[in-house]
Design a protein around this nucleic acid. Structure first.
Lengths: 253, 253
DNA sequence: CAGTGGTCTAGACCACTGG
DNA sequence: CAGTGGTCTAGACCACTGA
């Protein structure tokens, strides 16, 4: 009643269950109410309840089934799309203070690699940003982003020292709906070592990110290098639900 | 008719669509048949068709919606659970020859870190395997696995030089249904450099894997270190479906 | 055995998209 | 406007689990 109620029932239900699990109200490993019970409690049909449960299943929060009630698996919260995509939002969600120092913002012709990832012709103009990202004031990551021209133009009207480019572009109506993340390890080069204040050759955790619209047009390609002491990636997968994950030979990438 | 037909309809449909997409029969970015059409073609109800489409959505194969037909996003195949979990199966799926050289197979008390991940008391007995993994005959990864005692005991009846421990344990009836993967970068230590034939301090891509049963009991903890020239990880996420992904401060892990 | 989840159907209404 | 996908319902049958 006090809710805006724009949300569909199955989402409300899923969020409710998520909260109960996160609050530890249902112990890890304990059984949830049966589907039939949830139907009564939420006054929804079984289809709707199952939709909500399927969502939690895909998030790795619950497991089990067939004959027995579903079970709380991990109380670990999976991160939303925007939390996973935005350094700023991520840091804030972890209770840390994000920061950034812009080293360079430039418009220049794309080199072969960037052009390939952005699906534009080599030597097309792209907008490139080089920033040092901070966590609670200490250097944590180096971000080298390249934007396709149309979205990139907007960046010249934005203070890139002020916060999240991802959030800014979304506010400007840019459709950012999908991310592909290629993760590997590299040795810090001269520039990396200078900016992060570490020895050359130090192992860094690299995330190359390709951000695209809901229809598949590529908007951004970024090469982000984290100090592995400060961040890592966690993936969960189950035999029940196939996730969009793969381990690939580096030659292919 | 020629099928065994043990599979539910929605899985068959999903597999069919997956095949069509992978074969390039439907171009990348092109629209799929509408749900109504798919209902007729497959002689299924709309609920079933939507179930199949939801599966592909979660795999990142299709996107779009609301008012317009779904669109083929990437023709990239996501890997099944077992392909993602098993080095052997993964290598074979990429058309490469997996191999392994067992350095050690031992039963010993768990140290603090292993005990913590396996959820057993420190100094409980665990079974540890140290193997060098090869791709087409060249060293690619170092695997340090620790198994909880009950499952680990089975390994002494298995030739760990012969292939996949994962497959063997499953054949023995061990319930391996969930994986958590923590990915970061580390410098090669003395042992790593010796086995992989690289300089000490070389960056390695590390995957720490916690494998558990469908009810959440931990069976295996493994520390795998890849040569980053030979493998990396790819993740896809979309704003539509929340995936079981997170980027976390290393201190937490 | 009773209770559970897994699958499937048929029909309904809504919100959004495009011409 | 007609067509699309998003949501929701009600009822049915099956396969599996555990007491």
């Amino acid at each position: 009643m006090s809710q805006i109620k724009n949300q569909p029932k199955h989402q409300v239900l899923a969020e409710e269950l998520r909260t109960h699990i996160a609050s530890g109200r249902w112990a890890e490993g304990a059984a949830l109410p049966s589907e039939a019970e949830l139907c009564l409690q939420s006054n929804a049909s079984r289809g709707t309840v199952r939709h909500a449960l399927a969502t939690l299943r895909a998030e790795g929060l619950i497991a089990g089934g067939q004959g027995k009630p579903p079970v709380v698996a991990h109380a670990v919260k999976s991160q939303s799309f925007s939390t996973f995509m935005s350094f700023t939002e991520w840091a804030q969600s972890m209770g840390q203070e994000p920061g950034q120092r812009t080293i360079e913002l430039a418009k220049r012709p794309a080199d072969a690699q960037v052009a390939g990832h952005l699906h534009v012709d080599e030597a097309s103009m792209v907008v490139q940003v080089l920033r040092l990202r901070l966590l609670d004031g200490t250097p944590a990551m180096i971000e080298r982003s390249s934007f396709e021209a149309e979205a990139g133009r907007l960046l010249f009207d934005f203070d890139t020292d002020s916060g999240s480019i991802f959030r800014y572009l979304r506010e400007q109506g840019v459709d950012l709906a999908r991310g592909r993340h290629i993760i590997d390890a590299v040795a810090a080069d001269a520039k990396d070592s200078e900016l992060l204040g570490i020895a050359e050759g130090t192992p860094l955790l690299r995330e190359r990110r390709i951000t695209s619209t809901s229809t598949g047009e590529v908007v951004e390609y970024s090469d982000d290098r984290y100090l592995p002491q400060l961040a890592n990636f966690t993936i969960e997968n189950t035999s029940e639900h196939r996730a969009a994950l793969s381990r690939v030979p580096s030659a292919v990438a």
